[in-house]
């Protein structure tokens, strides 16, 4: 970590840094597969880095490195001590450190994906860590899951319902899932994917490009204006970077 810490503010973005995109969801729903898909789809056009939050050792990071979708150095692993939700919501220090280390080493970047460890329906990212978040479900968990709601399903900026190819085998009704998700999400988008059949997840990648472009043009707070209530006027606070002052804490 002995990098040049004075060189933190080099990114050309109006926010001074890359968009941070959280990818969360239950165990086995396809978070790592989606992250790999986004690296495949976007790795040639966007300057990317990935932080994984592994439950055991560095399995997800190793999977991504083996998949060869991104320079292995651009993938950092955070260990969460049995508590994946803590590391992305209540105590984001290790994740912020990993994100900033990647930005120092490879920056300026356009996008840093933070993939959470597999957790439950209540796990969401702190707005102090992720500017946008995707929640990933899969059809094999049952078509009742969107109806059950929970903060991940209801508040994520994008809900992805993966493994649609399995729907006939597990008796999941995609129409029901789509209707129920729409009912609890107040117009926020829902995308259906089968990453096994379509390994670049184009629809999700397009959504990500949209939010990265909006971020790069300074329209960072988005329709829900999340940034202003995070209450973090830290030492690095700068006018014109709403709610993201923590990102500029010099080390």
């Amino acid at each position: 970590m002995g990098a040049d810490h004075d060189d933190r503010h080099h990114a050309p973005h109006p926010h001074g840094r890359a968009l941070r995109l959280g990818v969360g969801g239950p165990v086995g729903s396809g978070k790592t597969a989606l992250t790999a898909a986004l690296c495949r789809a976007l790795g040639r056009t966007l300057r990317l880095a990935v932080v994984t939050n592994d439950i055991y050792t560095t399995e997800d990071a190793d999977f991504l490195r083996r998949a060869g979708v991104l320079d292995p150095g651009r993938i950092a692993a955070v260990q969460t001590g049995c508590c994946p939700h803590t590391a992305i919501r209540d105590d984001i220090a290790a994740n912020l450190d990993a994100v900033e280390t990647l930005e120092e080493r490879f920056g300026p970047l356009d996008l840093v994906i933070v993939e959470s460890g597999g957790d439950n329906l209540t796990a969401t990212f702190s707005r102090g860590l992720a500017d946008r978040q995707i929640f990933v479900l899969d059809v094999s968990g049952g078509d009742k899951v969107p109806r059950k709601g929970g903060p991940g399903v209801t508040t994520a900026d994008l809900l992805v319902i993966n493994k649609t190819d399995l729907a006939p085998m597990v008796g999941a009704d995609l129409t029901v899932m789509s209707r129920d998700a729409a009912a609890v999400r107040e117009g926020r988008p829902v995308l259906f994917t089968s990453i096994r059949q379509e390994p670049e997840a184009h629809a999700v990648a397009e959504w990500v490009i949209g939010v990265v472009e909006a971020w790069a043009h300074g329209h960072g707070t988005g329709p829900r204006g999340h940034g202003h209530d995070s209450g973090s006027p830290g030492p690095g606070h700068r006018a014109g970077s709403p709610g993201h002052s923590h990102d500029h804490t010099p080390v």
Binding site: Q79, T80, C83, T86, D90, D91, I92, A93, D97
Partner: peptide
């Protein structure tokens, strides 16, 4: 609960 990474 101090958010300083100790939980890991």
């Amino acid at each position: 609960r101090l958010p300083a990474g100790g939980h890991g």
